[in-house]
Amino acid sequence: MIKFTLEGDFIQLIQLLKATDLVSSGGEAQTVVTNGLVKYNGTVDYRKRLKVKKGDKVEFNGQTISII
């Protein structure tokens, strides 16, 4: 599990994937979200600009990111 400390109120989903090094570029982040490969709080979510907040969990490629 990856623990990501949130500095502000939220981080966009594609920015989170880049910040945790699970993807190498913004384009790759958009592609994996569009293709339904990312789960937000247990449900597949296709929103690239989704606002991820403290307490949320994001799953991608066998990794879980916990937002703290």
Rank of each mutant, 00 (worst) to 15 (best):
V44F: 06
G36W: 05
L16I: 14
E7W: 10
V52E: 05
K48I: 13
L17M: 04
G62W: 12
F10W: 06
L50F: 08
G27D: 10
G8P: 05
D21A: 04
A19R: 08
E59K: 06
A19Q: 09
S25N: 05
G62M: 12
R49S: 15
G36R: 10
I11H: 01
R47Q: 13
T31Y: 15
I65F: 06
T31V: 14
Q12K: 13
V32M: 10
G55C: 05
I65Y: 04
D56P: 09
N41E: 03
L50Y: 02
V33N: 07
G62K: 14
R49V: 11
G8A: 15
D56F: 08
Y40I: 02
V58M: 01
E28R: 00
I65C: 03
D56N: 15
N35K: 15
V33T: 09
D21Q: 07
D56C: 11
F60Q: 09
L17P: 02
K57P: 01
T64Q: 11
D56W: 01
G55N: 08
L50G: 04
N35T: 15
G42S: 14
E59T: 10
K18E: 03
V44K: 13
S24V: 05
K51F: 07
A19G: 00
K57E: 13
T20E: 06
T43Y: 00
L50T: 02
V33Q: 07
V44I: 12
E59W: 08
Y46L: 11
F10G: 01
V32S: 10
V33K: 10
K18D: 00
D45E: 14
K18R: 07
Q63G: 05
T31I: 14
F10Y: 12
T43Q: 04
T64S: 11
G8N: 14
L22N: 01
T34K: 15
N61W: 13
D45M: 11
K57T: 09
N41I: 01
K48P: 03
K39Q: 15
T20F: 08
G8Y: 10
V38N: 05
R47W: 03
K57V: 08
E28Q: 06
K54G: 11
D45V: 05
Q30I: 07
Q12A: 12
N61C: 12
D56T: 12
L50E: 06
I14T: 10
F60Y: 15
L13P: 01
K18Y: 02
V52M: 02
N61S: 15
Q63R: 14
G42Q: 13
E28P: 00
